[in-house]
């Protein structure tokens, strides 16, 4: 079976849970920016949670199905329509052969996930079907979809049914985040304590330059640096360091003015200081921020970060239980008993 792309949407890509293991040669994880939403979309159509689906940004594609299919849309509130008739989000629905799935305008969030029973069956590259557009790798020919593309779909294996739905309180990330929790560290000693306090106190608006590589923010006060003699190899700007690795979620502030939070298609390293890292539990929320949305960065401890991580995991487990999905294959491998 196959899906014909009639309209591509703004930047629709094939994504699964990514390809770990190659960051040391500059190939990032990639995969869904909102991993929770991807997992739930897949569960709703009976796929493995890590199956490949479509990530749609701001604007949905228009897709014609060659055969009957089971579909679910999660993440951003981007209302699906089947031959023009509205269908609910976070709920599985049937598509008949020849029908066209399109989308109404975006109501909330930024990225919707469209899962199809059987998954989007593009070739595995380094163990993943995710698109890494900067490296022309994975997905459909290493790029975002365009009109005229044909997406292969695998054979449905799960036992999902039409009308499966997720309770409102389990639709994690459907409310826009106003705070991103982060752990100060890395090179935060490069800025003055007062300046760091200002960074946490200010509201930061998402800049138009926000994509899968990273989200840029502006609107807060510029940072003041601690004086130093530039270390050999670092460069002369006070925000420069000897090029190092960049953690996913790390917050770099080139020139001390506009913070950039790196995301799933992160550049793996570079020469700008970072003042900390957004915690794993809040990474999904970033992918749902629209341009101009305002957030504050809230410093937390490791213990608080781990508690937030467990909370996210518990929500995922509640969804699994509600849908009769297996608890294994969790986002995080579990400790042996």
């Amino acid at each position: 079976m196959a899906i014909e792309v009639l309209k591509a949407g703004l930047a629709t890509t094939v994504q699964d849970l990514g390809r770990p293991g190659h960051y040391d040669v500059g190939i990032p994880l990639s995969g869904a920016m909102d991993r929770f939403a991807l997992r739930v979309a897949n569960m709703l159509v009976g796929n493995d949670e890590g199956a490949a689906a479509l990530e749609c940004v701001f604007m949905g594609p228009s897709l014609r199905f060659s055969t009957d299919a089971l579909v679910a849309v999660t993440g951003a509130e981007l209302p699906p329509k089947l031959d023009g008739v509205p269908r609910p989000t976070w709920t599985s629905f049937a598509v008949a052969a020849g029908q066209v799935l399109s989308f109404d305008y975006l109501r909330r969030g930024a990225r919707a996930y469209v899962a199809v029973a059987g998954e989007i069956d593009v070739p595995l590259v380094l163990g993943s079907r995710s698109t890494y557009a900067l490296g022309a790798l994975g997905g459909l020919e290493g790029r975002a979809l365009k009109a005229g593309d044909v997406l292969p779909v695998g054979l449905p294996g799960g036992a999902a049914s039409v009308g499966q739905s997720v309770a409102d309180d389990l639709r994690r990330g459907s409310q826009t985040a106003t705070a991103l929790r982060m752990m100060p560290g890395l090179y935060h000693h490069r800025v003055t304590p007062d300046s760091l306090d200002g960074f946490f106190a200010d509201a930061w608006a998402v800049a138009p330059e926000a994509d899968r590589i990273g989200y840029r923010f502006r609107g807060g006060r510029p940072l003041a640096f601690v004086d130093r003699r530039p270390p050999f190899g670092a460069g002369s700007d006070p925000s420069n360091i000897v090029d190092s690795c960049y953690p996913y979620g790390s917050i770099q502030v080139p020139g001390g003015t506009e913070p950039i939070v790196l995301h799933r298609d992160a550049v793996s390293g570079g020469g700008y200081f970072m003042l900390g890292t957004v915690i794993s539990a809040d990474m999904d929320f970033i992918g749902q921020l629209q341009p101009h949305a305002k957030v504050q960065f809230t410093p937390v401890t490791m213990d608080e970060a781990l508690a937030a991580r467990r909370e996210r995991q518990a929500t995922l487990d509640r969804v699994r239980k509600a849908m009769g999905a297996p608890i294994e294959g969790s986002d995080t491998a579990r400790l042996a008993p």
Binding site: M182, M183, G185, L186, P231, F232, G233, A234, I241, V242, S244, C245, P247, Y248, G249, S250, M274, G276, T277, V278, I279, S280, A281, M302, A305, L306, R309
Partner: peptide, 18 residues
Amino acid sequence: YSFGGDEHVFVEVSEEMS
């Protein structure tokens, strides 16, 4: 040593290159 969030350890061997 510094933690990069709850999933990374960052180890700076030296501030300057050699």
